[in-house]
Amino acid sequence: MINKLWALFIIIGIITFIITGDYEGLNATILNSGQKTFDMVIKIFPVIALWLGIMEIATASGLLKKLSNLFYPILKHLFPEIPKDNKALGYISSNIITNMFGLGNAATPFGLKAMKELQKLNKKRNEATRSMITFLVINTSGVTIFPTTVISLRMMYESKNPSEIIPICILTTFISLMIAIMIDKIFARRYQHE
């Protein structure tokens, strides 16, 4: 599926550029993407290094273990395949907590660590596991309680009540998260039977 989507983006993009006659823009876009990727990776590099450092202290001291024990009653239903004492659960908890407060930058390294631990449990090295997909779905459907960026933008553009959206935001997040988890469970079951 990712193959088709990728091809679709590239083909539609190039054809639209050609129809509008913007050949210079087309060439520039292709050539610049390497530089843009490099800039992006370089930009998150120090953030990842910093949080992996902090995270290592939390792992070595056993703090992460405590955190995952706290969330285990909920997590064991979402991730039935992860053994109780696995580090992945701690990283997943930290990722979800930081995401709740809209701190995407700090959440990414935790998410990457969680994925690495899940990969250690994986028997087919290049195939996604059920737990990995559930974790991604929770991540991408969003768990934000306090959307920091949106509220500061609303302030900047002189909203009469910048934070009025918070209750609806939480409600939307909750409804869509519940439905997403249900859909994920249905797909996982269907995939097992095939």
Binding site: M1, L112, M115, Q119, N126, M132, I133, A180, I183
Partner: peptide, 22 residues
């Protein structure tokens, strides 16, 4: 980002469920 970093090639139904939830 996540699947690329750990080297997953077959993503199964991940994208479908992700987009439906969006």
């Amino acid at each position: 980002l996540y699947f690329g970093t750990i080297g997953i090639k077959k993503i199964k139904y991940a994208l479908t469920v992700g987009l439906i939830s969006d």
